[in-house]
Design a protein around this nucleic acid. Sequence first.
DNA 1: TAGGCCATCTGGTCCT
DNA 2: AGGACCAGATGGCCTA
Length: 149
Amino acid sequence: MKSSKSNVDSGELDTHCKGGTGCVAKYGSERMESAAKRRLAANARERRRMQGLNTAFDRLRKVVPQWGQDKKLSKYETLQMALSYIMALTRILAEAERYSTEKDWINLHCEHFHQESYHTYMEQKMEIENDPYAQRIFSYPPDHFQITN
DNA sequence: TAGGCCATCTGGTCCT
DNA sequence: AGGACCAGATGGCCTA
């Protein structure tokens, strides 16, 4: 947990307003008190929400490659790394599938000499290989990856 | 000391 | 009305 930043609502309703005359001066009416209570409740909810978010970031950090660096990834870096990692895995899966079936696929189509399909396939293949997006798919060198969990 | 990162507060908006 | 979500502001901690 981070340091006691603004301590307005840590514990009591309001450290500026611990009952008595100060409260009356600050929140002259019950409506104001109710609004203050709601604000504090909202602060607490927001804190819990952000803590949940941070827990999710921690879980993500554990499954994302760290490149062996000891320093914890920032939130931004974690998201970037997760994106690259997913892209890399997707690419690996796609390639694995292609290499395991390509021969059969070509044989099948050559057998019946379905020329149109073959050309379509070759065009698609070229597109993938020339696609700048596919080139970007994995911007981090895979050999630097180190699974940390 | 400056800059990066983060936690927290806060007010606004949208939804139930 | 109240909760969830979001973005801006603020200030603390850490590192180069």
